[in-house]
Nucleic acid binder design. Structure first.
Lengths: 178, 178
DNA sequence: TTACGATATGGGGGGACACCCCACTTATTC
DNA sequence: GAATAAGTGGGGTGTCCCCCCATATCGTAA
């Protein structure tokens, strides 16, 4: 890729990052192009769709979340580690404007960010299943979907509320065993 | 209200119902107005916002769901009744295009449809808590929010998937007691 | 039945948006 | 430094939401 194209791409992603943080996942693409100092055609050439742009915006942060799963996979309590990671995912998703929307509303063929999260969480799930504290018919993609769904529903309320709902969903609504 | 205004209102709601079923909650308002045979200004006078229109479109169906909660509240197994109703809510929300979006994305001040659902489900929850099969710190609004969230996440997949996730969230991820 | 005031209507315009075409500019390579 | 391939952005098109206001229609009281 030519040097100027690379530079413009970076400018666009930076501008998009700010715009999405301010206005959410449906921020105006033209405004992003203006802020980046490029024409709207350039933006559309680099990113054929809004989701392609959002994926570039959030790629690094999703990678950080995946790394966090790696850190948590060495503790003693596997169930605890899984719960912690899912809650952190929920809180982070709720407080980072546009992230959940871009994860959930992206067209199914390009779910690379979601796929990364599922792959990163899988070791946590497997350890917990082996430990016997998580049902073996629970798939990682179910858990990530649940968390994304809750984060989206709670995006307008608070992160604490999102965490509450995630814990509720993980524990179920039955009274705890005596 | 004048008779012609009433007639136009009904025409708009009917056209909107069809358009939303076909194109989702963000169907073009102008197209709805065209299909109804009225000017776009008339549509906007009757329904100042998209959400006001969607509320009118889904009002009857939400009422039907609430009535269903009433039916279920007389069976012997309260926990089962609650689970059944929430699953039906999830399936119906998933298969009725635009319903979940209109429930979740509507501005918080006009949550009348959501409020109806919470109020309708509350007796089911209370019976199950009294029966001892549901934790007493679980609020109905949490359950409805969970179901709405799952339905939104599963809107693009299948209703069966939505039901699976609802059951998973209600039961939790722990292995069942022996 | 008629006439009048209140109400409802919709065409047309403004502003914003996503997306695309194409003449022009720029970086790279030899 | 010239050739060439790649990149660029201004401007055009079609769509959208929303609003203004002259006109048409309704309901009612005489």
């Amino acid at each position: 890729m030519r040097a100027d194209a690379q530079r413009n791409r970076a400018l666009i992603v930076t501008a998009a990052s700010e715009a999405v943080a301010r206005d959410g996942a449906y921020a105006s693409l033209e405004e992003i192009a203006r802020a980046a100092g490029v024409g709207s055609a350039t933006l559309h050439r680099h990113f054929p769709s809004r989701w392609a742009l959002l994926e570039a915006v959030f790629h690094d942060r999703v990678e950080a979340l995946c790394a966090r799963a790696g850190e948590l996979s060495t503790g003693p309590d596997a169930r605890q580690a899984l719960t912690t990671w899912l809650c952190e995912l929920a809180v982070y998703s709720t407080t980072t404007r546009g992230l959940v929307t871009s994860l959930l509303k992206a067209p199914p063929e390009s779910e690379s960010c979601s796929a990364m999260l599922v792959a990163a969480g899988e070791p946590l799930r497997r350890r917990a299943v082996e430990e016997g504290t998580v049902r073996d018919d629970v798939e990682m993609i179910d858990l990530v979907t649940l968390v994304k769904a809750i984060a989206l529903a709670a995006e307008s309320t608070s992160a604490a509320e999102a965490e509450r709902l995630v814990r509720l969903a993980l524990e179920g609504i039955s009274p705890s065993r005596q």
